[in-house]
Write a protein that binds this DNA or RNA. Structure first.
Ligand code: SF4
Ligand code: SF4
Lengths: 149, 149
DNA sequence: CTGATGTCCGACCGAACCAGTCCAGTTTAC
DNA sequence: GTAAACTGGACTGGTTCGGTCGGACATCAG
């Protein structure tokens, strides 16, 4: 129901950790796993996927680890989600996949795709650099209270 | 990921069908199922959930069927999704559910919740009445670029 | 009033998907 | 050479989701 996967969740967690300025710009999978109490092997696989997606750079060897492949401000959350879970699609169908049985008779495709574009836009508007700002000091005049309609 | 369930998809399809102006304002589950070639029983269950959610009104008996409980313009897609799949949550945690193991150490909750609010806002901006407008005539002056933030 | 009909309703089940695990292999620093 | 770290694949258990079944209820013919 429009919920992002746990893996994507962990990915954002790790990216945020790497984005926050500190003495070291890199960290090993083990360090990250211990910092947040999550299964090391799973986190490792997530990080590998991020490397494959071009968001992280990896360094093998005994002093190895992971680091951001580009500035944190240039990594959006859509990038992360797509690197982990594949292309973002709100519906089961897409421009390149007409496999839905109701495709010909369906008349809500276009509006929903438009909606998808809007969601993607909202997700691309936030970068991991913004995630790294701690305690979000209300950069906007509108706090959390702008909920629903 | 971030994909809506097939049931929610069917729900929107059915609601759109009921929202389009025509001779009858109601339709039976069987009619709808045949119109769109989808499993009748499943569609029936979806409709039941919508009734429970207060979006549809049902009429039993030999001339029974389903009808909109309120004007189409007052039914947003979030209403539909929440009626089908429960409350919208982007993350596994929420204001009322701290069951995530990383809850105390997590530092991306607030930004993600804000993101959720923004998505919900985008989803509440569209009503089923807008879905009923066929063939979306104009690409509208403001395409996808109304990122809003 | 009564039976037949067609509808809604709730419980049930199998399949797909996802979080999590394991292990064998490769690369690099010391 | 050895230890620490990344890489890649295959495997499993649990949960959710799509789909199916029989029963309850309201309407209408007679
Ligand atoms: S029902 Fe329509 S919108 Fe949904 S997956 Fe099928 S074609 Fe796409
Ligand atoms: S990791 Fe953080 S954001 Fe994700 S579910 Fe847990 S507490 Fe929520």
């Amino acid at each position: 129901m429009l919920r992002l996967s746990k893996k994507a969740d962990y990915a954002l967690l790790a990216l945020r950790h790497l984005a926050v300025p500190g003495p070291r710009a890199t960290a090993s999978a083990r360090e990250l796993a211990e910092s947040y109490d999550l299964p090391p092997e799973l986190l490792a696989k997530v990080l590998q996927q991020l490397v494959r997606g071009g968001l992280l750079s990896s360094q093998q060897g005994i002093r190895g680890g992971y680091g951001l492949a580009r500035p944190a401000a240039e990594i959006t959350v859509v990038d992360v989600i797509e690197a982990i879970d594949g292309p973002m699609t709100v519906t089961a169908c897409s421009e390149s996949d007409h496999s839905c049985d109701q495709y010909t008779k369906c008349n809500i495709r276009d509006p929903l795709w438009k909606l998808k574009d809007r969601i993607v836009a909202a997700l691309s508007a936030t970068t991991v650099a913004e995630l790294a700002i701690d305690l979000v000091p209300a950069p906007e005049s509108i706090p959390v209270s702008l909920v629903r309609r």
